[in-house]
């Protein structure tokens, strides 16, 4: 980061900068705080938005947490989300990373960047547009309302991330060691598996986290392709919005449970994040 601008700044500028940053941080954190407070209120107490401090303004209770956590549907949805997100991540990486490596290291009749772009092109399709064929495909494969059905869909959608980001990461890894290994008589597979991949672990982790988060947060396909046993947490949240109406405290608990897992993962990855999010178009 550019220290020089900061060091040369006047005291007033510094105060202004901190004020703005603090404001941004507060606005970012406020919904979390609001949800946390509502989650320990009773349903009636939630209609007192001014009661903000536990014990002082209102009597905190864990009832809504117990309510949600004792609901087998919510537990089942949470497990579904974990299984589907992890499954998708693993599957998208198994398919995408080797392809990315091939595009980074070898030449194809078509320009490598154009193949990457082709992978990317599916991302412009509004998901609702391909919903019909996907639904019918899942019906014919008897995969409606199954984890596998969702994993198949999601891995296709997220493959673009894995391919485009990892291609970019692999291209950054120096080929000197690979060349040396080649001279020693290593096979292409050994070079990929034992040299390039271990050198790209950081990028691999960021890609995995992004795929996990996007899968975890997806709601449209999750709602359309599941009905009960494979319902994910996001689909459950969407459904409870319309079926249960809005109990502020229950909504708060649901929100927090839904939000926390990917946000925790986010804390561990920052380095390649911009590259990943821009499909490698932004260099880190």
């Amino acid at each position: 980061m550019t220290k020089i601008l900061w060091l040369r700044a006047s005291l007033i500028s510094k105060v202004v900068v901190y004020t703005l940053l603090a404001l941004a941080a507060v606005i970012t954190l406020l919904p979390f705080l609001w949800a946390s407070i509502n989650s320990i209120k009773t349903s009636t107490a939630t209609f007192e938005p001014h009661a903000f401090i536990p014990f002082l303004n209102f009597e905190p209770t864990l009832d809504s947490w117990r309510n949600v956590l004792s609901d087998p549907q919510a537990i089942n949805a949470f497990i579904s989300s974990v299984v589907v997100s992890v499954g998708t991540t693993v599957f998208a990486l198994i398919l995408g990373v080797p392809a990315a490596y091939a595009l980074a290291r070898f030449q194809f009749p078509i320009r490598s960047g154009d193949i990457a772009l082709w992978f990317l092109s599916q991302r412009v399709l509004p998901p609702a547009v391909v919903l019909v064929p996907f639904y019918l495909l899942m019906v014919s494969l008897r995969l409606v309302d199954t984890w596998i059905g969702l994993i198949l869909c999601y891995s296709a959608f997220n493959l673009a991330f894995a391919v485009v980001i990892m291609r970019d990461i692999f291209r950054d890894v120096s080929t000197e060691i690979e060349d040396a290994a080649k001279v020693e008589g290593a096979t292409p597979w050994q070079i990929f598996w034992k040299i390039s991949l271990p050198l790209s672990v950081d990028g691999l982790i960021v890609t995995a986290v992004l795929v996990f988060a996007f899968t975890w947060n997806e709601a449209l396909f999750a709602s359309a392709l599941t009905s009960q046993s494979a319902t994910t947490f996001s689909a459950l949240v969407l459904a409870s919005r319309s079926t249960r109406g809005v109990d502020f405290n229950i909504a708060a608990v649901n929100t927090l449970i839904g939000i926390v897992p990917p946000v925790i993962l986010y804390f561990f990855v920052q380095r390649y994040l911009a590259r990943g999010l821009s499909f490698g178009a932004v260099k880190g």
């Binding site: 996001s234 969407l238 929100t255 839904g258």
Partner: peptide, 8 residues
């Protein structure tokens, strides 16, 4: 999660 944000 976007649906959670909408719900919140």
């Amino acid at each position: 999660m976007e649906v959670a944000i909408g719900y919140l």
